[in-house]
């Protein structure tokens, strides 16, 4: 499957325009023991991680009461993800989940934007191409599965075995649907992100192939917008799932709230 270049195989005459070449399913394979890795995903994700870590270190190196510069920016980011977690999980429980939800948002956001803004293609790899890490299904599924684990952990640590009550909470008739939900949640999370980012890159690539100048710019701007929205959606949904696991479907706690 990974050798199929979709329908959009570039004609040989355009091969010189390597900037416009579309490659889907080609990977730079790394061999680790007898495990195969997608090297280009790790390379770009390391860049993203490095940006995050360096920005954090630079912002917290000299913390001032009146923030300025990078500290201000990072505080804005932190307050943003804090508010996101607080709105979804609730004032009482959100604090331990800020690192997880916040890292989800920041990592996905930076990954998406790195795919849209950094001209990775100028760096030529032996095989495959550098792109947003979220462009690879492995990354998005990994994040989605982590989200599933996170909300299971949240549910069990908060309510113990009572967490299972949520499966039969309104009525046991919905038990199959409740179980199905646990599978559809990571599936939808991962495919939404993967699909959006890949589709965005493909649309831009196709447009660049057809009209190399100026015309793809609005689509690229739209791509930046969708990338940001997708990061927000992923983090918000993850926080919402965690909240659901903590509070339960229409449990007494929840009813006493509303």
């Amino acid at each position: 499957m990974h050798q199929s270049s979709l329908l959009l195989t570039v004609p040989n005459t355009l091969d010189s325009m390597f900037l416009a070449k579309i490659e889907v399913g080609h990977h730079l394979y790394w061999q680790l023991g007898n495990l195969k890795l997608h090297g280009q995903v790790f390379l770009t994700s390391w860049v993203v991680i490095a940006i995050l870590v360096v920005a954090s270190l630079a912002a917290t190196r000299n913390i001032q009461r009146i923030p300025s510069g990078l500290q201000n920016l990072m505080e804005y980011a932190l307050e943003f993800v804090r508010d996101l977690a607080k709105n979804q999980i609730g004032e009482k429980e959100y604090r331990p989940w800020v690192p997880f939800v916040g890292t989800l948002f920041l990592f996905i956001f930076l990954s998406n934007w790195s795919g849209a803004l950094v001209p990775w293609r100028l760096i030529r790899l032996p095989e495959g191409e550098l792109a947003a890490p979220t462009n690879d299904i492995n990354t998005t599924v990994a994040l989605a599965l982590l989200t599933s684990l996170a909300y299971f952990y949240a549910g069990f640590s908060k309510r113990g075995l009572g967490y299972f009550a949520k499966y039969i909470e309104p009525t046991p008739i919905l038990l199959p649907i409740a179980i199905l939900e646990d599978f559809t949640k990571p599936l939808s999370l991962s495919f939404r992100l993967f699909g959006n980012i890949l589709a965005d890159e493909l649309v831009v690539a196709v447009l660049v192939l057809l009209v190399p100048l100026f015309v793809p710019l609005p689509i690229m701007a739209l791509g930046l917008f969708t990338s940001a929205i997708q990061a927000l959606v992923f983090a918000t949904l993850a926080a919402a799932y965690i909240h659901e696991a903590i509070e339960g479907h229409g449990g007494e706690e929840h009813e006493s709230h509303s």
Partner: peptide, 25 residues
């Protein structure tokens, strides 16, 4: 095509979250 990228990415993400927890959050 799923391969070892998936678990390694998950581990890497958790490490990033832990690291950012210390140096950022």
């Amino acid at each position: 095509d799923f391969d070892a990228t998936l678990p390694l990415m998950a581990i890497q993400f958790l490490l990033l979250a832990a690291l950012l927890n210390v140096v950022f959050y």
